[in-house]
Amino acid sequence: MKVFLALPGNERLARWLAVQTGGAFCGLRTRRFPDGETYVRLGRAVLGDEVYAVCTLAHPDRRTLRLLLAAGAARDAGARRVVLVAPYLAYMRQDRAFAEGEAISARHFARLLSHAFEGLVTVDPHLHRIRALGEIFDIPARALHAAPLLADWVRVNVERPLLIGPDVESRQWVEAVAHRAAAPFAVLTKVRRADRQVEIELPALATFSGRQPVLIDDIISSGTTMIQAARMLRAAGVGRPVCLAVHGLFAQDSFERLSALAATVVTTDSVPHPSNGISIARMLADGLSGI
């Protein structure tokens, strides 16, 4: 039997996956000991079962240890195999050492998860120089893509959209969304000077007069890129953009700052947040087959 083990905060998605796949739901009892160490206990027996640990990995430093302990508990309890379902996969940005002595976090985090699980399913990991998850994971790892879901949302909710990508690297991804949404697209030029310092140049948009700008990115973290792009679009007279992303992390007050500039801000529910407006649950259920 498939058993969906919900890490705290992931109960809704785990229950949905259990219902859609004919599996069972398993909660996790967890607490802190007085010395700060973590206690976990599975909410049901899993002997002989396939256990799917459902855990989005936003804010990974406070979630990963509990996840690893839960995976170990499932294996100790006789699970046939343990697979990680991580709608958002952390630590993919640092994929090379830019200075002497830096940890290549993507590779180290992948090794850690590969040791704890027999498989991985995630959504749109933030890959740059790593072309596929198989380059860093030692287990079957499947990356699902939410572009069709974003395109379908645009088709239903935005009249005369103009899709806008934040940088040259986003061109292929934004073009795919635009093609499915039957909409034109443009790409901004971005130069990142530091984590919170980004310079953006707008392309010529006069030929797209009368269209609703839709800024699209895979991740909104600090929000710097989208905030600056939204501000520039308004200054250029293009109007308030719809801001759309797969993963909404929204560090500090970035959501409030972006919302003040945008017509609306919408993300998938890969990371629970008030901006969630696109469900990835069915895509995840379909993506589990064959892992």
Results as ranks from 00 to 15, higher is better:
Phe4Asp: 00
Phe4Ile: 03
Phe4Cys: 01
Leu5Ala: 13
Ala6Asn: 10
Ala6Ile: 14
Leu7Asp: 07
Glu11Val: 15
Arg12Asp: 15
Leu13Ser: 13
Leu13Arg: 14
Leu13Phe: 15
Trp16His: 13
Thr21His: 00
Gly23Arg: 00
Phe25Met: 00
Cys26Trp: 11
Phe33Thr: 11
Thr38Ser: 10
Arg41Asp: 02
Val46Pro: 01
Gly48Cys: 08
Asp49Ala: 15
Asp49Pro: 12
Glu50Ala: 10
Glu50Asn: 11
Tyr52Val: 06
Ala53Cys: 14
Val54Asn: 07
Val54Tyr: 13
Ala58Tyr: 08
Ala58Asp: 10
His59Met: 05
Pro60Arg: 09
Asp61Leu: 06
Arg62Ala: 11
Leu65Lys: 08
Arg66Trp: 05
Leu68Asp: 11
Ala73Met: 13
Ala74Asn: 09
Arg75Asn: 10
Arg75Gln: 10
Ala86Val: 15
Tyr88Thr: 02
Leu89Val: 06
Arg93Phe: 14
Gln94Met: 12
Gln94Leu: 14
Ala97His: 09
Ala99Cys: 09
Ala99Phe: 15
Gly101Leu: 08
Gly101Arg: 10
Gly101Asn: 12
Ile104Asn: 05
Ala106His: 04
Ala106Gly: 08
Ser114Tyr: 12
Ala116His: 11
Ala116Glu: 03
Ala116Lys: 02
Phe117Ala: 02
Phe117Pro: 01
Val121His: 00
Thr122Trp: 02
Val123Phe: 04
Val123Gln: 00
Val123Asn: 00
Leu127Arg: 11
Ala132Lys: 14
Ile136Val: 14
Phe137Thr: 06
Leu144Ser: 13
Ala147Trp: 15
Trp153Tyr: 07
Val154Leu: 00
Pro161Thr: 07
Gly165Met: 03
Pro166Val: 09
Pro166Gln: 02
Pro166His: 07
Pro166Cys: 05
Asp167Met: 13
Val168Pro: 01
Val168Cys: 05
Ser170Gln: 11
Arg171Gly: 01
Trp173Ile: 05
Val174Gln: 00
Val177His: 03
His179Cys: 09
Ala182Leu: 06
Val187Tyr: 05
Val187Met: 03
Val191Leu: 04
Arg192Asn: 08
Arg192Asp: 04
Arg193Asn: 02
Asp195Glu: 14
Arg196Pro: 06
Leu202Trp: 10
Ala204Thr: 12
Leu205Tyr: 11
Ala206Met: 05
Phe208Ile: 05
Phe208Asn: 02
Gly210Asn: 09
Gln212Glu: 08
Gln212Lys: 04
Asp218Ser: 14
Ile220Ser: 04
Ser222Cys: 10
Thr224Ile: 03
Thr224His: 01
Thr225Gly: 07
Ile227Gly: 02
Ala229Phe: 05
Arg231Met: 05
Met232Val: 09
Arg234Asn: 06
Pro241Ser: 06
Pro241Gly: 11
Val242Asp: 01
Val246Glu: 01
Gly248His: 03
Leu249Cys: 10
Asp253Leu: 00
Asp253Glu: 08
Phe255Cys: 03
Phe255Ser: 03
Ser259Ala: 15
Ala263His: 15
Thr264Tyr: 01
Thr267Phe: 02
Thr268Asn: 02
Asp269Val: 15
Ser275His: 06
Gly277Met: 05
Ala281Thr: 15
Ala281Phe: 13
Ala281Gly: 15
Met283Arg: 03
Leu288Asn: 10
Ser289His: 14
Ser289Phe: 09
